[in-house]
Amino acid sequence: MSLLVPHLHPLLGEGGYDLSRLVKENRNSLLLLGSAGGFCFVLSSLKIPSVSGSCSHPTGVGLGAILFRPWVMTVIGTIVLGFQALLLAHGGITTLGANAMSMAIVGSFSAWALYRILKRVGAPMWLAVFVAAAISDLLTYCVTATQLAWAFPDPISGFLGSWTKFMAIFAVTQIPLAISEGLLTVVVVTYLVKYSRSELERLGALRMQKEAA
């Protein structure tokens, strides 16, 4: 799994470049960056009990991926994962590459793409944000299950056998949490649109909303 680490470097570089340009262009976007990072930090610290009888935590990358470009959120998501791996012994250092792949890359890119597509189709903003955040959260854990099945294929039923096993553990637990994350993201986006419209417009975020209106 640690073989996935090298694949991260170009994206992290791109994200770091994006991040520094963003802050240089407009100091105020640092505030929005704080909202996105703080949201990601809070949500990934909340281990919430689920209907399946075990606990898991949301990812919170959807918000930042929608507001900024997904590369930016790749960096923030990797920072959160690194924090958890180093200080909380949650996730682990050797699996950082695999976790960053599922949460910071697949999570943020799928949220961004879903939001774009739904806005293009003409969906209202709250629906687009909800679906993007919820599905990206769910996808993160599907990717985790796939990675684990890939690393540990069942001796008898092979890849598919362990894939269904890991999906039952991770994806099913995540369904109610994905709904929660979607709702919370919509709430935060609503308040940001209301109170920091000038920053969002200057950033070019949620641009699609104006076109649709």
């Binding site: 505030l31 929005l32 704080g34 909202s35 990072g37 703080g38 949201f39 990601c40 930090f41 809070v42 949500l43 990934s44 610290s45 909340l46 281990k47 924090f83 958890q84 200080l87 909380l88 949650h90 935060v188 308040y191 940001l192 109170y195």
Partner: peptide, 16 residues
């Protein structure tokens, strides 16, 4: 984990 929640809550709500 409590510390992480504290940090995240502080950053998110100070910007809001």
């Amino acid at each position: 984990f409590g510390f992480q929640g504290l940090l995240g809550g502080a950053i998110l709500f100070s910007t809001l």
